[in-house]
């Protein structure tokens, strides 16, 4: 009996110690969310979401920042989803798993996922702006700087490179859930491999691919470091309408207001409102993707 008591005591003590880890995680998460919701929610209004800032960022809304973020992420998605899906299709449907080129691509994807976001910013600056942009200017505009400067298009392409692994990994997972028999049946009926892919495999993998795209959008909308010097601006009197325009961005807005505002107390309500909008966008999308994936995993055999 004493043995049994010690046995149980040990288990309870261990559960308490290891459970404290979970408590800290949940506690921190709750603290962050509650603080931001409590301070940010009173800010949200129609005016806040649809008006530009006024009076040195102490009044008005954040419409240009929302608009810029949406546009940025839209362009990024257009660039990243096709490339990511095709790469995953190649890895899963065409390449032999142990082929050297498949291993090379996988290792590139793994490394790409681990590169710090600020390095992507440097890459965008060094490659897209200084190399691609400047060369377009030299060829088409006689050296006048049009494309060779921070711009919407370069920021979104930089983010596309950053989110490429997200789309590839999610798409591969989606392709894995399509039963092999379906492809074989299509081939047996006389489909070419591409037709089997296009008419059978991809439609069945579509929800999983959508999940990947949503995850990429959520990630892209929240990243601030890569756009610091590839196109984001603190304040613009106009909305971006051309790929070479600069843009306002929710994350960048939060960063500048929080660190460089001359009067932090005066901008604080707006700041909390902006953080809440950014958080709602990313968390909602992220939650949607997690939920979709959870449901997909459940329904698949």
């Amino acid at each position: 009996m004493i043995e049994a008591k010690r046995y149980r005591k040990g288990t309870i003590a261990f559960a308490a110690v290891s459970g404290s880890g979970v408590v800290v995680i949940l506690g921190c998460l709750a603290l962050i969310l509650v603080d931001i919701f409590v301070h940010g929610l009173p800010q949200l209004s129609w005016e806040f979401l649809t008006q530009p800032p006024r009076d040195g960022m102490t009044a008005g809304g954040i419409f240009p920042a929302i608009f810029g973020t949406v546009l940025l992420v839209l362009l990024m998605t257009i660039a990243v989803v096709p490339v990511g899906v095709i790469t995953a299709v190649f890895l899963h449907e065409y390449a032999r798993p142990d082929a050297w080129y498949a291993r090379l691509i996988r290792s590139a994807v793994y490394n790409l996922a681990g590169i710090p976001s600020i390095v992507f910013g440097l890459f965008g600056l060094g490659f897209f702006i200084q190399f691609v942009g400047r060369n377009i200017d030299a060829l088409l505009f006689g050296g006048e700087v049009v494309w060779g400067q921070p711009a919407l298009i370069w920021a979104s392409l930089t983010l596309a490179v950053l989110t490429l692994p997200v789309v590839i990994v999610a798409t591969e997972e989606a392709l894995r859930t399509v039963p092999r028999e379906n492809r074989e049946a299509a081939l047996a009926l006389g489909c070419t491999p591409f037709e089997a892919l296009w008419k059978v495999t991809l439609p069945q993998a579509a929800p999983g691919i959508l999940t990947g795209a949503i995850l990429a959008v959520s990630r892209g909308a929240g990243e601030t470091a890569p756009i610091l010097f590839t196109g984001a601006a603190y304040f613009l009197p106009y909305l971006p309408t051309h790929p070479t325009d600069q843009f306002m961005h929710l994350g960048y807005h939060v960063y500048v207001m929080a660190t460089q505002s001359p009067d932090v107390e005066a901008t604080k309500p707006i700041l909390y409102g902006t953080v809440l909008v950014l958080l709602l966008v990313t968390v909602t999308l992220n939650g949607l993707a997690v939920w979709l994936r959870y449901r997909l995993r459940r329904t698949q055999p």
Partner: peptide
Amino acid sequence: VKPAVELLAGIPSVVLGFF
């Protein structure tokens, strides 16, 4: 716990920095 951790992972770093 698992969705909560994914939620934490989904919070942008600029929001964590702000907090």
